[in-house]
Design a protein around this nucleic acid. Structure first.
Length: 801
DNA sequence: GTAGGGTTAG
C-alpha cells in the first residue's frame, strides 16, 4: 500500500469538509442525513478516517436526524474522541431527548479531559429535558471539582433552576453566586436570574408580588437590556395574574419589541380575555410593531377559544395575503392554530384540508385533527387516524380515551387507557378523567373507585377535569353521596361541576334539591350555560315542578341571553306532558321558531304513553316514523303505550311492523357485579348453567308471588310476547335475569346494581318497581344514558319510561 | 463543542 502524503490527506479532508458543508445547507434534516451518509460511505470506502470538525459535523447530522442508534454505533467506539467531539455528542444526544446516552458520554470523559464547555452542555441537557434538580446538582459537582463556571454555565443552570425553584432563599443564594463569579453584568445571566425570581413568584410558599418586585428591581438595575429582559417581566406579571401591571409595563416601553407584545397577547388569551388580546393585536398592527407566527397563533387561538369564528377566518385571509411564501416553521404553528379554529366551529373537513396541505406536520397537528374527529363524534375516522399516528403523545391517548368514553364506547376507552399504561406512559389528570368517564358509561363503580384512589395517590385529586368526571361517575353508578362529597371537596369548580352535580341530584329523583343547588349556583354568580338549563329542566320534569320549569325556560332567553335550542324545547314538552298538560305542550310546539324535529315528537309520545293519550301519541309516532323510520325507540314507545292500556293486539301489530321493516331487536346484554365478579347475562344464553339457576329461582319466586296474589293483577308479566318463558312471573329480558341473580346472591336490604347496554322497556320497569317492594332490595338499573332507581315500589329516574 | 422567551392539541 502506498503512503498517502500529508498534502493528499489535507486535500481529501478539504473535499469531504466542503461536501458536508454543502449538504448541511438549508436542507430538511432527512435530506441532510442521507447526503451526509453518502459522503460518509465514500470516506469509509476510501479508507479516510473522519476526525476533528469533519467528525463533529457528521456527529451533529446523525444525531439531529434522531437516528441515535446509528450515531452510537459509529462514534461511541472511537476511543480517541476529543473533548470537542464528546461535547457535540453530549449536546446532540440530549437535544434528541436521550439523557441516558448523553450522561454515558459525559461520565466516560475523564476529569483530566473535561472543561467548562462540556459541563455546560450537560447542564443544558438536563435543563432542556426538564430535570432541574440534576442540572443544579451537576453545577455543584462542577464547582467542587474546581471548574470555573462562566456566563454560559449560569445562564443554563439558572434556566434549569427556574423549573424547580420554589423559595426566595434559593434565589438569593444563586444571586450571590452570580455576583461573586463576576458574571453579574452579563445580560443573558441576569435575564435567567430574573426568570428564576418570576418562577418563584408562582410558588404557593411565597407572596407573588414581593418576588415579582424583586425581579423588577433586578430588571431596573440592569445596565443593558435586550428583548428577552422586557419579555420576561411581562410574562412574570402575566403568570401572577397581574395583567394590568403587565400592560402598564408594556405601555411604558419605548422600543417596539414584537416578542413583548406577543407575550402580552398570549397572556390575555391564557386568562380568557380574548377581546383584549384582539385589541392588542389591532394596536400592534397600527403602531407597526413586527408581527410574526407567534402573534398569529395567539390571535387565532383567541378567536378559536372565544368562539369568534368570523374574525378568525378574516385573520386566516389576512395571513394568507401577508405571507405569500411562509417558511415551514411559520406555517406549522399557524396552521396548527388554524386547524383548531376550524374544528371548533364545526368544520372538521376544512381543518383536515389545511392539515393535508401542510408542508410539515407534527404531533400537535395530528392531535388537533384527532380532537376534531372526536368532538364531531366521528369515531370511526378518529380510530383510523389514531392508528396512523406514529409518535403518539400522552395527549393523543387522552383525546382518544375521553373521546371514546364520551361517545359511549366505555369498554374500548378502558382498553385504550390500559394500553397506554402498558406502553409506559403515566396518565395525567385528563387521561384519568377520560377513564373515569368510561366507568360512568359502563357503570363500573368498583373500577371507578380504584381510579379515584390512584388519582389521589398520584396527586391529581385537585384536578378540575378529573373531579368533574368523578361527580358524573358516582352519580351514574348510583352513589349520589359520593358525587356530592367530590363536589364539596374540589378546590376549584366550574360550571361543568355545577351542572354535573345538579344532574346527579335530578337523576336520583331529588328534583327539589337539584333546583336548590341551581339557585345556589346563581347566587355564587356562576353563569349558567345551555347544559345547565337542560339539566334544570329535566330536574323540574322529574320532580313535577311545572311552574318552576316554565319560569326557568322563560328566564333563559330573558335574563341569561341564551336562545333555547330544540333540546330545551323537548325538555319543556316532556315536562308539560308528564304533568298531563297536553294542550300547553301543543301550544308550545306551535310557538317554536323552527320546525319540530324528532326530539320534540319523541318527548310528546313518551308523555302520551304515561297518560294513555292514545290519539296524540299515535300522531307523534306517525311523525317519528316519517322522520326516522328505522329508529327502534319509536316502536318500543308505541308498543309500551298500547301495553299500558292492555291493547295487546296493537302491541303485536307494532312488533309485526318492526319485523316487516327489518328493524332488528338488538341482542340485549346486562351485567351485574357481585363480590367483585362481573356476571354477564344474555337472553340467548338460556342453556348457560348460571342462567338455568336463575330460571329456577325465578320459577320459585313466581310461585311465591302467585301465592301472595301479585301475579294475576299484573299485566306486565305477559307483555313480552316473544318470550318463551312467559309462564314465569317475570319474562326473560337480560336485565331481569341479572336482577333475579342479584336477588339470589345479595342479602336483604342490599342494593342491586345492574347495567344494560340497551334501554330497558316498560314491562321491566313495572317489574322492578314491583320487585323492589316485594323483595325489599333497592334496585338500580343503568341503561345507555338513563338511570332508574327503584325503592319500595317507587321509581325515581331520569327517564321517559 | 455549550446558554436565555413569546405559540399551537384536551
Amino acid at each position: 500500500m502506498s503512503m498517502t502524503s500529508a498534502f493528499d490527506v489535507r486535500t481529501v479532508a478539504n473535499r469531504y469538509a466542503a461536501q458536508l458543508l454543502l449538504c448541511c445547507r438549508q436542507n430538511p434534516i432527512h435530506i441532510k442525513y442521507s447526503m451526509a451518509r453518502t459522503v460518509h460511505a465514500h470516506m469509509i470506502a476510501s479508507g479516510f478516517r473522519p476526525r476533528g470538525h469533519i467528525l463533529n459535523r457528521l456527529i451533529d447530522v446523525y444525531c439531529k436526524s434522531s437516528n441515535l442508534n446509528y450515531a452510537r454505533k459509529l462514534f461511541d467506539k472511537i476511543p480517541e474522541l476529543d473533548i470537542v467531539a464528546r461535547t457535540t455528542l453530549v449536546a446532540a444526544y440530549s437535544a434528541a431527548g436521550n439523557l441516558k446516552l448523553a450522561r454515558e458520554v459525559f461520565s466516560g470523559t475523564p476529569l483530566s479531559m473535561r472543561d467548562t464547555v462540556c459541563y455546560n452542555a450537560m447542564i443544558t441537557g438536563y435543563s432542556h429535558n426538564n430535570d432541574g434538580h440534576a442540572a443544579v446538582k451537576l453545577f455543584g459537582d462542577m464547582r467542587r471539582d474546581n471548574f470555573r463556571p462562566d456566563d454560559f454555565t449560569f445562564t443554563s443552570v439558572l434556566s434549569a433552576m427556574a423549573l424547580v425553584a420554589d423559595d426566595e432563599k434559593q434565589c438569593q443564594q444563586m444571586h450571590c453566586a452570580v455576583v461573586k463569579s463576576g458574571t453579574g453584568f452579563v445580560t443573558s445571566v441576569l435575564n435567567a436570574l430574573v426568570s428564576v425570581y418570576v418562577k418563584c413568584a408562582l410558588s404557593p410558599l411565597v407572596s407573588p408580588s414581593s418576588l415579582m418586585s424583586a425581579a423588577r428591581r433586578l430588571f431596573d438595575d440592569m445596565s443593558e437590556r435586550d428583548e428577552l429582559s422586557w419579555t420576561t417581566i411581562i410574562t412574570g406579571y402575566v403568570r401572577i395574574n397581574d395583567l394590568d401591571a403587565a400592560r402598564k409595563f408594556l405601555d411604558g416601553m419605548t422600543e417596539k419589541l414584537g416578542v413583548a407584545w406577543n407575550a402580552m397577547i398570549s397572556g390575555y388569551v391564557h386568562h380568557g380575555f380574548f377581546h383584549e388580546a384582539l385589541q392588542m393585536f389591532r394596536k400592534m398592527h397600527l403602531m407597526g410593531v413586527q408581527e410574526d407566527e407567534f402573534t398569529y397563533t395567539s390571535v387565532i387561538s383567541a378567536c378559536a377559544n372565544g368562539g369568534l369564528f368570523k374574525l378568525g377566518k378574516e385573520m386566516h385571509a389576512y395571513i394568507l395575503r401577508k405571507e405569500a411564501e411562509p417558511t415551514p416553521d411559520f406555517s406549522l404553528s399557524v396552521n396548527n392554530a388554524l386547524i383548531t379554529l376550524y374544528y371548533r366551529c364545526g368544520k372538521v373537513d376544512e381543518a383536515r384540508e389545511i392539515f393535508n396541505k401542510m408542508p410539515v406536520r407534527d404531533i400537535v397537528s395530528r392531535n388537533a385533527i384527532l380532537s376534531g374527529y372526536v368532538n364531531a363524534g366521528r369515531i370511526e375516522e378518529a380510530r383510523f387516524f389514531f392508528k396512523e399516528i406514529p409518535d403518539r403523545s400522552l395527549l393523543t391517548w387522552t383525546v382518544m380515551i375521553s373521546g371514546l368514553a364520551q361517545n359511549g364506547f366505555g369498554e374500548e376507552a378502558m382498553k385504550f387507557f390500559n394500553q397506554m399504561r402498558l406502553e409506559g406512559l403515566e396518565p395525567c389528570d385528563y387521561a384519568f378523567a377520560g377513564a373515569i368517564t368510561s366507568c360512568a358509561v359502563l357503570g363500573a363503580l368498583e373500577h371507578g373507585c380504584q381510579l379515584h384512589t390512584q388519582l389521589i395517590c398520584l396527586g391529581h385529586d385537585s384536578s378540575l377535569s378529573a373531579g368533574n368526571a368523578l361527580i358524573t361517575m358516582y352519580a351514574r353508578c348510583g352513589v349520589v353521596e359520593a358525587a356530592n362529597c367530590v363536589f364539596l371537596t374540589m378546590p376549584y369548580v366550574d360550571s361543568v361541576s355545577w351542572n354535573a352535580m345538579i344532574a346527579a341530584l335530578a337523576q336520583h329523583g331529588q328534583g327539589v334539591q337539584a333546583i336548590e343547588l341551581f339557585e345556589e349556583m346563581l347566587k355564587e354568580g356562576i353563569q349558567p350555560d345551555r347544559i345547565t338549563f337542560l339539566t334544570v329542566l329535566s330536574a323540574c320534569s322529574h320532580a313535577g315542578l311545572v311552574k318552576e320549569g316554565s319560569h326557568y325556560f322563560d328566564s333563559m332567553c330573558g335574563s341569561y341571553g341564551t336562545t333555547p335550542g330544540e333540546d330545551h324545547y323537548a325538555r319543556m314538552i316532556d315536562l308539560l306532558c308528564r304533568a298531563g298538560k297536553f294542550s300547553e305542550a301543543k301550544d308550545l310546539i306551535e310557538s317554536m321558531p323552527f320546525e319540530p324535529g324528532a326530539p320534540i315528537w319523541e318527548a310528546l309520545l313518551a308523555g302520551c304513553r304515561i297518560h294513555g293519550n292514545m290519539d296524540l301519541g299515535i300522531q307523534a309516532a306517525e311523525r317519528l316514523f316519517e322522520l326516522m323510520p328505522q329508529h327502534d325507540g319509536t316502536y318500543i314507545l308505541l308498543s309500551n303505550m298500547y301495553a299500558k292500556e292492555g291493547r295487546w293486539l296493537d302491541v303485536a301489530k307494532v312488533r309485526k311492523l318492526m319485523r316487516d321493516r327489518g328493524i332488528k331487536k338488538e341482542p340485549g346484554c346486562s351485567w351485574i357485579e357481585v363480590e367483585n365478579k362481573v356476571n354477564v347475562f344474555l337472553v340467548d344464553d338460556s342453556m348457560h348453567p348460571e342462567v338455568q339457576a336463575v330460571y329456577k329461582y325465578l320459577e320459585q319466586l313466581g310461585l311465591e308471588m302467585r301465592k301472595l296474589g301479585y301475579v294475576p293483577d299484573t299485566k306486565f308479566v305477559l307483555h313480552d310476547m316473544e318470550s318463551e318463558h312467559k309462564e314465569y312471573a317475570l319474562s326473560t329480558h337480560s336485565e331481569k335475569l341479572a336482577v333475579v341473580f342479584g336477588l339470589m346472591k345479595l342479602p336483604l336490604g342490599a342494593t342491586i346494581r345492574v347495567f344494560k347496554n340497551l334501554r330497558i322497556c316498560g314491562d321491566c320497569h313495572n317489574a322492578f318497581r314491583f320487585m323492589s317492594k316485594v323483595v325489599k332490595r333497592e334496585i338500580i338499573v343503568r341503561d345507555g344514558k338513563r338511570f332508574h332507581h327503584f325503592r319500595n315500589g317507587e321509581c325515581s329516574c331520569g327517564n321517559y319510561w
